[in-house]
Design a protein around this nucleic acid. Structure first.
Lengths: 108, 108
DNA sequence: TTGACATATCAATATCCATTGATACATTAG
DNA sequence: CTAATGTATCAATGGATATTGATATGTCAA
């Protein structure tokens, strides 16, 4: 049983990772800047063990990459997963709009 | 304390609503078609009380609208909330890409 | 090697969420 | 009015998740 991963699975996974205020703020800080945990602690005023926990969640969802340099761990935003999910949501919205006023109705 | 709602709050709320497989499938069925709960029960093979529960969650997140006609309750996908969230995610991804190879690094 | 620091992991708790069955409510048909 | 049907709500349960403090691991500096 290969248990294949659908696009929907990816979107749901990504949305779950984004469904927390602290994690969303982490991504906002990470945009355009490779950032170490110590700076995230300063910028977000969140205790370090809690940040490590949320960073792990983001990493498992494929939204960030981690790289260790010396004593610091640097995190980078991964635009790919974010873009795929954004596209999936935008496509749903667009399909709905193109149906326009002439929505089908069930149970005729 | 007005407790103003930010764009991030909206995105997080929307993502939380989308972070469940059943709810995501509901939206996929709703695309382009006003649908009653009874048809959702058939299409998704999910018990009716559970569907009502998830539909309430989607409604509170602004992702669907409900309209009662006779004995049936019809649900419609609301493209606005979906599109706003898609744009928010796409913007994050785009900002990251435009930073390109020349990412800033903290703790320089 | 020793001490200081950055980060991750572990254990524990509290809270939230999904799911289910039973039931209540509202609307239509007879 | 009464019966049948579609849907929502309520109560209860189990499992997941957020949060915190304590501790372990690994790295640099002296």
């Amino acid at each position: 049983m290969p248990a294949k991963t659908t696009q929907r699975d990816l979107s749901v996974t990504c949305c779950r990772a984004l469904s927390d205020d602290t994690r969303f703020r982490i991504l906002e800080v990470l945009v355009g800047k490779e950032t170490c945990v110590c700076e995230l602690v300063d910028r977000l005023d969140v205790p370090q063990p809690l940040l490590s926990h949320h960073l792990k969640t983001l990493k498992e969802a494929g939204l960030v990459r981690a790289q260790k340099r010396g004593r610091w761990m640097f995190y980078t935003l991964d635009a790919d997963a974010l873009e795929e999910t954004a596209n999936a949501l935008a496509q749903l919205a667009q399909q709905q709009r193109s149906a326009g006023e002439s929505l089908e109705v069930c149970c005729g």
